[in-house]
Each structure stands twice: as structure tokens, then as C-alpha cells.
Design a protein around this nucleic acid. Structure first.
Lengths: 112, 112
DNA sequence: TTTCCTTCATAGATAGTCTATGGGAGATTA
DNA sequence: TAATCTCCCATAGACTATCTATGAAGGAAA
């Protein structure tokens, strides 16, 4: 298949952090997480399902979130995710590292 | 080969921008670019050679930089890179997009 | 004359995102 | 009541960018 230009809807490497942070508001299902991120970011960040579900799998495997099946507000079957305490710790580390990076990049970009 | 944890030395997707910006200071060789970025970022950003040279190849192919051989301050053969005007335009676009993204991520991360 | 540093470069592995696709099931509308 | 819509899950395959590892060549330094 031929691909044209890739229009990034996310900064690569930040999705796990965004998901973990979003889940600190409380348990949510995958679809809801994506919507929330999109909404709060004023539609700038778009979380595609093909990025979201693999990410949630990673987080499950690493023990940073846990999941259980339930029913959504719309009466549909949905899988609710929660951050574990290991996940909160991880979130702290990632957020801190992200700040460091952005700060460093800003230093490089603002020098004449 | 078994890999342990990957400690990111860069935010993925930002390397081209960093290189282009660094080159706006004037022509530099690859090794020098890496050193400069590392220095200005207070050693936070580390540009590995296996990331740097593929990146420079990309930029050459896209016409955002051009290169010519010369001799370094240390009397060694070196390839000097310069940003083209297309490269400057690209830099503007990428920098703007990066700001947008970081701003959006910040909004998500600071909400309680 | 051996070792170190500079400067180039490539190959292969890996991670993360995107496109594309599929399906089930409740809600809505015709 | 049939068709369609929307919600919600999920996977496969392609692609990009980075990292690890490695090599080579030549000048400098010990």
C-alpha cells in the first residue's frame, strides 16, 4: 500500500503517560479514555483505536493498569481500566522525564 | 540479543527538528551537531550516532539540508551540513506543531 | 607504535504509532 | 421489524524512528 504523509496525532512515546494520567480520574473504558484525551486537549490529540488498544495491552502486561468487564452508561458491554499503584509510580517517573525532555528541547530551540 | 529497559535519550519525533534548528547557527559536521545538542541541553539530550546519521540521510533526501566535504578544526575529513531554505520552512512547521502538541499534553496532564 | 579520539557510516533489533478491518450488541429510525 | 447507527472491543500488517552494536580510517598523543 502506498502511504502519503503521516500526520502525527500524538507525540510518540507519550501515549502511556496520557492514558495513565487520564485514569487517575477514576475507572474508564478504552473508548472513554480516547474521548477524554481528545476533549481535554481541545481536539489536538487524537487517540486512534489501533494505538489505544495495543497501549492498554502493554499497560496490563506491565501491571500498571488492571481491567474488569462491566456495563457502560449506554448499557453496552465495556472493559473498565484502573491504574494500579505501580502504575501511579510509573506515571510519576514518566511525567518527570517528559518535563525534563521538553525543557531540554526548549533550551535547544530557543538559542539563537 | 536480550534487551533490558530502553532509556530514551530523545523524545521520538523531535530529532529532525533539533538538527535543523542547530544548523541554523551555521554549517556543522554530524559529530559537531550531536555535541552541540548535548551541550546546550545540559547533557539531557543524547544523540546517538545510529540515530544521527540516518536522520541526516533523511534530511538530505528530502532536500532540507545539503552537505559538502571539508576539513574540521582538528584537521580531520568531515562532512559539513547546511540548512536549505526548504529546510528552514520545514523547521518552522515542525516547531509550531511541536509547540501545539506539548501545549495539548500539558492541558491533559495538569487537569486534576 | 600503540592507543586514543574524531568522524564517518551501516545493519539489525525493537518499539510505537497508523491504517485498515472486523465483529457484536444496544439504540434509533424508517 | 428491518435497517442503520453508534458504541466498544480487538487484531494484523505496514511503516517510522530510535537504539545497540559494529566497523573503518586517519590524525594526535603517549
Amino acid at each position: 500500500m502506498v502511504r502519503t504523509a503521516t500526520k502525527n496525532e500524538l507525540l510518540p512515546g507519550t501515549l502511556d503517560m496520557l492514558i495513565l494520567h487520564t485514569l487517575t480520574r477514576g475507572a474508564m473504558h478504552g473508548y472513554g479514555i480516547a474521548q477524554k484525551i481528545q476533549e481535554i486537549s481541545d481536539e489536538v490529540l487524537q487517540v486512534e483505536e489501533g494505538s489505544l488498544y495495543p497501549a492498554l495491552q502493554r499497560l496490563l502486561v506491565k501491571g500498571w493498569v488492571k481491567a474488569e468487564w462491566g456495563t457502560s452508561e449506554n448499557n453496552r458491554r465495556a472493559r473498565y481500566y484502573t491504574v494500579t499503584s505501580a502504575g501511579k509510580k510509573q506515571l510519576g517517573t514518566e511525567a518527570e522525564n517528559f518535563r525534563r525532555m521538553v525543557h531540554a528541547i526548549a533550551r535547544v530551540m530557543q538559542t539563537a
